[in-house]
């Protein structure tokens, strides 16, 4: 157990080992450990954020769904109303058209009746004159009797 140069050698070795550790061993490993710590912290906060986002998205989706439903209901309502309107309008139109056609037909019938009556009237007068001529076998003065004949025709 002699104290000798070994003491100094050991001190030098110690100094070199500490220097090497300070310079080449400690920094890279602590840096990596800190980086991992940060990575884990980031990951955890990202997970928190993601679950928050999910909740928000779900809320949003539910709201959108509700809106869409309301919109659809409104659209259907509107469409129904419009359809009813259209039906009502076409019914109206049809009725009017029908009325108009009926009116027209009536007017035409009336007109034809008048025409037929006029024709018949003329014919009757002629026939009556001819008949009377035949009966009397005499020529009848048309002018003299026209007043009577017209009166007859008017009674028909």
């Amino acid at each position: 157990m002699n104290i000798n140069l070994t003491l100094i050698g050991q001190s030098i070795a110690f100094a070199i080992f500490v220097w090497f550790c300070v310079k080449y061993v400690w920094p890279p490993i602590t840096a990596a450990m800190e980086a991992r710590q940060k990575k884990i912290a980031d990951g955890l906060s990202a997970a928190d954020r993601a679950s928050l986002d999910l909740e928000l998205a779900q809320d949003n989706a539910a709201k959108k769904m509700q809106e869409a439903k309301e919109e659809a209901a409104a659209l259907i309502d509107q469409a129904n109303k419009r359809a009813a309107q259209i039906v009502e309008a076409s019914k109206d139109d049809a009725r009017k058209e029908g009325d108009k056609l009926l009116e027209q037909a009536r007017a035409e019938i009336q007109q034809e009746r008048v025409q037929a009556r006029d024709a018949l009237r003329a014919e009757v007068a002629t026939l009556a004159v001819a008949g009377a001529e035949k009966i009397l076998e005499t020529s009848v003065d048309a002018k003299a009797h026209s007043e009577m004949l017209d009166k007859l025709a008017a009674q028909l």
Binding site: N4, L5, T6, G9, Q10, A13, F17, F20, C21, V25
Partner: peptide
């Protein structure tokens, strides 16, 4: 004092090198 313990120095340096 003018002497060196070869075994002490050798093994301690070997252990330090092993560690580092």
């Amino acid at each position: 004092f003018m002497a060196v313990h070869v075994d002490t120095l050798g093994w301690s340096i070997a252990m330090g090198v092993l560690f580092l």
